[in-house]
């Protein structure tokens, strides 16, 4: 996605510096997961395999971009008292679309993600972006904001999933990296005594990996360290 954005760059005003910042910021210094620490629950639950991570990331990206667009278009029509309800309706509708599409075309992944697709509705990132950005900005910046935050979330999800799948199951996207781990017919590293780390499959390890990523990010960029 990010490459697509870059190639379109010359098209001009749509991609002014400010708009570009909306996309790039959430990828690094304002990442929704590592800096704002939103949407952690799903990041812990569904990052056991890279495939699930990618699907979940794309699903959130889709909901976030379209939702931001819709809310932004409606922003002057929504009475502020019931804005949360309107936002919820929009998210719910989009999530149901995503869920049905997944069920139709990727039944096995949909099964693994189970309830977590439905729980995108309650993902703080989405409500947070609607409330903080789309309610106050024009449609185009809102879309950019959605793309940025969605990519930031998906990127982190995939990063965590890579670690967990690689060390937890010894595979990446289902391809065996370290050799065959079936007992009795081990090849590659397994023949040398290597074993998969079951801890990586358990949710606590995802929390620790996210924590380590946050640690590395903050030690590289001191301005992110909160003082209190």
């Amino acid at each position: 996605m990010s490459e697509e954005v870059k190639t379109k760059e010359p098209k001009e005003p749509l991609f002014s510096k400010k708009n570009k910042k909306l996309v790039t910021d959430p990828l690094t210094d304002n990442n929704p997961v590592t800096v704002q620490v939103l949407g952690i629950c799903s990041a812990l639950a569904i990052t056991v395999q890279v495939e699930q991570g990618i699907v979940m990331g794309v699903a959130v990206l889709f909901v976030l971009v379209l939702g931001n667009l819709i809310i932004s278009l409606l922003r002057n029509l929504i009475p502020s008292r019931i804005r949360i309800i309107v936002q919820l309706v929009v998210v719910a509708a989009l999530v149901i679309i995503v869920n049905e599409v997944l069920k139709a075309y990727m039944p096995d992944v949909s099964e693994k993600l189970s309830v977590f697709v439905g729980l995108i509705i309650t993902n703080c990132i989405i409500m947070g972006r609607f409330e903080a950005f789309a309610m106050a900005n024009k449609p185009w910046p809102s879309i950019m904001d959605g793309v940025g935050n969605g990519l930031g979330y998906a990127g982190l999800l995939i990063l965590v999933a890579v670690f967990r799948e690689l060390f937890g199951s010894g595979t990446l996207l289902g391809i065996q990296i370290f050799g065959n781990s079936l007992p009795g017919e081990e090849t590659g590293l397994y023949a040398m005594g290597y074993m998969n780390n079951n801890m990586m499959i358990l949710p606590p390890m995802a929390l620790i990996i996210v924590g380590v990523i946050i640690w590395i990010q903050r030690s590289r960029n001191k301005s992110l360290i909160e003082t209190h």
């Binding site: 074993m195 780390n197 079951n198 801890m199 990586m200 358990l202």
Partner: peptide
């Protein structure tokens, strides 16, 4: 504890 949960068979 780490070993216990990560490599239960060992």
């Amino acid at each position: 504890a780490f070993l216990f949960f990560a490599y239960p068979t060992s």
